[in-house]
Amino acid sequence: MIITNLEYLPHQTISQHLGLVQGSSVRAKHVGRDIMASIKNIFGGELKGYTELLQESREEAMQRMQQQAEAIGANAILNVRFSTSSIAQGAAEIYVYGSAVIIQDNE
């Protein structure tokens, strides 16, 4: 499975478009991280807990997107985009979407 945010692949042609595939994930952090975050909020600096949380969350969303693409028989996802929205205090939604296609080598 090729996942890319370019619109086409050189030396390869798209033989079939299979439509949009997407994956989303909503996560909240646990209380311990929240307390650490409020301390960091006073002194500034990186909130490692949040960074990890969002990273995991993105990986999960991408996995879901990939599963969806595999289910419809795609072998590549082109033009992948990410979007983040904070829904509530301490919870964030990660959304990934792209176009599922079947690609073939030119040769």
Binding site: N41, I42, G45, E46, L47, T51, R58
Partner: peptide
């Protein structure tokens, strides 16, 4: 696809 993310807080 490669990603890089960071969460920063202001003091």
């Amino acid at each position: 696809l490669v990603l890089g993310n960071v969460t920063l807080s202001v003091d």
